[in-house]
Write a protein that binds this DNA or RNA. Structure first.
Lengths: 193, 193
DNA sequence: GTAGAATCGGAGAGATCCCTCCGGTTGCCG
DNA sequence: CGGCAACCGGAGGGATCTCTCCGATTCTAC
């Protein structure tokens, strides 16, 4: 969705190949090195001159967004798909754990979710709003079903998610297991205590 | 401990004042802006030329360490002081919560604890080893007393701490309350379930 | 095969950032 | 109050990063 060069002629074959390669390399670089990686470095790893990469992506941010936004949108899509699931509690916790699991292996994705460093995923952005709304809907249904504590707000869950990402990512980096997500999910449940 | 200019003559009065002011400004800048702040920017905020600041601190890292290491050492000292407390569980959880509470208001302190970006607090450093050792001792005592799950290792607790820092810091930034530390502490307790 | 358009490559402008160097200024001691 | 050691200030070197520009190269349509 959103092929914004629909009126333009299709890319030349070699340009298309190169564009694909840049995306591939950028994806790997971002996953392993995070958002601090330089544009020049990505061009170098891909084996292109910087001019070539800039031809395809007008800005450093544009390249990063082309790589990262798709993944974010998939999280949103997952949440929406689960919004009508039978078991709201199961849907909420399952989604939460999936996001932590999938994002924690990707350095740049974690940083994007944690801080406000990517312009396209900031407070007030459409994507950020969609993410929050989708999360909020899952949360609300789970709360109505009595599976999640009623005093939790959407922002609270977002912050808990960020915390889980930090913990799981570090644990993964040293080859250990922390299961921060499990502990936090337990904490979010309605406790009968 | 470690006043390495004991043989040198004392600083001139104006130099001493300026040094103090630099530390003060750097402390504020690091707390609010984190480790990415530039040396030039700190000099500018303090109202000095960069040469003046470099006279007192030979390197950017040296300045940062002068500001941050004291706080870290206090956490270690706190842990050591609690190592002989009556109630090991109470000591462990109290220390954990204190660290989260005090560090989460300081951007640079969080980043230092989370990543390995400050040379003086890396794997293999004395300070990092002291921190881990002090934490480990608190943990072990709490586990022997049956207050904390036995399968938790020191590194696990460190990662959980990092996660709490991320969550609490973000919550604090938006004026909300998350109590991530509470949830995680609950999760670390031996559950009778 | 060839003309012409699309694409590539990388030098370099402009902005920072860390740090050095040294002339001008200031505080301290007798 | 005079002399000098200590200190201040900021210009600028060297490195790195984002992004631009245009000659050289490559692809494609005929």
């Amino acid at each position: 969705m959103g092929d914004d060069h629909s009126t333009a002629r299709p890319l030349r074959a070699d340009a298309r190949r190169n564009r694909e390669r840049v995306l591939q390399i950028a994806q790997e670089a971002l996953a392993s090195d995070g958002l601090t990686i330089s544009f020049d470095e990505i061009a170098r790893r891909a084996g292109f001159g910087v001019g070539t990469v800039y031809r395809h992506f007008p800005t450093r941010e544009a390249l990063f967004e082309a790589v990262l936004l798709g993944r974010m949108e998939r999280f949103v899509a997952d949440a929406r798909a689960l919004a009508t699931a039978e078991d709201p509690g199961r849907a909420f916790f399952g989604w939460f754990r999936t996001v932590v699991e999938q994002a924690s292996v990707n350095q740049a994705l974690c940083e994007m979710l944690e801080g406000g460093t990517v312009p396209a995923f900031r407070r007030g952005t459409t994507l950020e709003a969609d993410f929050a709304a989708a999360l909020g809907r899952l949360l609300q249904r789970a709360q109505r079903a009595g599976a999640v504590r009623g005093d939790l707000r959407t922002e609270d869950v977002q912050d808990l998610l960020r915390g889980c990402l930090t913990a799981e990512r570090r644990a993964r980096a040293r080859g250990g297991k922390v299961a921060m997500a499990e502990v936090v999910c337990d904490g979010m449940r309605s406790h009968p205590r």
